[in-house]
Design a protein around this nucleic acid. Structure first.
Lengths: 223, 223
DNA sequence: GGTTGTGAACAAATTCACAGCG
DNA sequence: CGCTGTGAATTTGTTCACAACC
């Protein structure tokens, strides 16, 4: 009986993956799932799944597994997903538009309220179903929902000033796609997604793997 | 004198960040940089920087710091960035187009060769300066450069079959934006970027921070 | 029998603190 | 004196292996 306080960072980072798998299984009519199977679908090993889940509480049944719906519910609750978190995307360029159009946000509880851009040609238009607003409207947009998440999808040069405006408007969570380290006050959370960084990491690891024999068609996967 | 073999994963993940900082400093005319300063700009602490760099070798000078150009060169070499890695983006939807247009790839040594899409309305066109090719062309596209990186920017439903085709064509590094765990043979590397996952992680941590007093304008940053 | 939940063993990563060198 | 490079200490994360339980 681990009553579950202080969930390790590494575990938190995996919960969304488990949650997605559980949603898929639930949709497929699966009622219970073992740590073994969940591990396979999530691409990790079973011991890790059990340890991770034990941090949430004792939601499994020995000899049986976990009830998919129930586990998913507990996980959503723990992640704070019981109510929707609105998203405002700053930067209505290619990336901003792609994110706005990307169905994965709204469908997973993150409705895209608006895009924000200073280009007068864009302000007032609706792109991909999302209205484009002027940066001055940020405080109004955020005022209603204090737990709005701000997404920075601008060029690096303006990312810091955009972040400042988001913070001033009351945003306390920021997802940053610009390749800069944002400075924000205490209490504001930033996560960064850097596309070129990901490629560089791939680049490092690929050079070690000698070039390999020609393609074996094995489904290795969960390595 | 750490002659540098087996660089820890956590270190590899930070090298691209250091490298970007070094490039910016070099562009600004800075000649040498201390671990303290590099740490500040990269958003980590100085001990970590020194430990990370020590895995590459002893490239610093005590009492002085690191020569920016030299360190950047050694780092690029270690990351395997001395020659360009071509990128093929599969999926010419919003995300694919955004990635194709995103300058950050080409400018950092990852030229975008082509997008691939099965939509006949798109094949043959040039979008954002990048030609759209038919999936059947994949083997030809990749044949020339065996170290091509494949980017999966398709809906989840087809991501696995796309990955299969990439692997069959000879691709050994894949960056996956689809919210699925890809199964690939040994020797093929996959990294995943899941946008909704990032939002969910933000969601978890934000709910703990009680809502906070009204905005203090402190530049906390590097926390 | 089958599967969870968890202590204990192990491994990786971070941080400290300082000797060593320029 | 200043700053790097690194052993040692600490913390965090992973894996093992098995008792507890259905």
């Amino acid at each position: 009986m681990a009553p579950a306080r202080r969930i390790p960072e590494a575990t938190v980072a995996r919960l969304p993956v488990y949650l997605r798998v559980l949603a898929e299984e639930a949709a497929a009519g699966v009622i219970t799932i073992s740590s073994e199977r969940l591990a396979e679908l999530a691409g990790v090993n079973a011991a890790k799944v059990r340890k991770d889940l034990s941090h949430l509480g004792s939601y499994g049944t020995r000899g049986v597994g976990y009830t998919v719906d129930y586990l998913a519910y507990q996980m959503s609750r723990e992640l704070g997903l019981t109510e929707a978190r609105p998203v405002v995307i700053v930067g209505a360029g290619n990336l901003g538009q792609a994110l706005a159009n990307y169905g994965g946000f709204s469908s997973r509880g993150f409705p895209v309220l608006a895009m924000v851009d200073s280009d007068p040609d864009k302000v007032g238009r609706v792109i991909g179903g999302v209205p484009v607003r002027h940066p001055d409207d940020l405080p109004d947009l955020v005022a209603d929902s204090p737990n709005t998440i701000g997404v920075v999808a601008t060029p690096a040069a303006v990312a810091q000033s955009v972040a400042d405006r988001l913070v001033d408007a009351g945003v306390r969570s920021i997802l940053n796609f610009a390749p800069v380290v944002l400075a924000v006050p205490d209490g504001v959370l930033v996560r960064k997604v850097d596309l070129a960084t990901e490629l560089q990491i791939l680049s490092f690891y690929q050079q070690r793997t000698p070039a390999g024999r020609r393609r074996s068609r094995a489904r290795a996967g969960v390595a």
